[in-house]
Design a protein around this nucleic acid. Sequence first.
DNA 1: AATGCGATTCTCT
DNA 2: GAGAATCGCATTT
Length: 203
Amino acid sequence: MHKLDRNFYKSDAILLSKDLLGKCIARKINGELLIGRIVEVEAYKGLIDKAAHSYGGKITERTKIMYGEAGYAYVYMIYGMYYCLNVVASEVNVPEAILIRAVEPLQGMETMSMFRYNKHYDELKKREKINLTSGPGKLCKAFNITKKENGYDLCSEDFYIFTPESSDNFNIKESKRINIDYAEEAKDFLWRFYIEGNPYVSK
DNA sequence: AATGCGATTCTCT
DNA sequence: GAGAATCGCATTT
């Protein structure tokens, strides 16, 4: 198990987003480790990107975490109901982040299932098992990520990203980002990346 | 398979 | 007060 260090995150959002595919998110809750493999991400580059909350260098209470050091969590609420997890990228005062859009659950599925559905994992239908973590709002529910985790240091002991011991090869596909129709020319940027063929990639 | 819509509340102007 | 980096369900094709 190799935990990603601060320097790993001090990278351009597009490069880092691709580097994060295949890595694993780990979160320790009540002594239990929940683990998910990152299979889908989107890059947001505030200075030039009309889809980004920090577009044009806009600093607000919500966006300020993205202006700090890389490797911290940016968690925001969306549509009044869901949270989305991002990893802050790049350098101080360059507001970039990677939206974690989907993970493949590897460990702690029973606990994830209770957070997400309040049902036991072995009672889930096939579709519900896929839907456990196949979207940005879904994975936050499964990992119990809320506003409390905004600003959390991912170079820490109980919430971090690591390189798995072994991993099959995979192909990276790219596409336009999801649900940013308001973003004018930026909506056509190919800044969504995912692992080809993985069933947990969002639809 | 594709499309449409309601839920629900934070954030910013 | 408007709109949002989503989701789940209903309806239509």
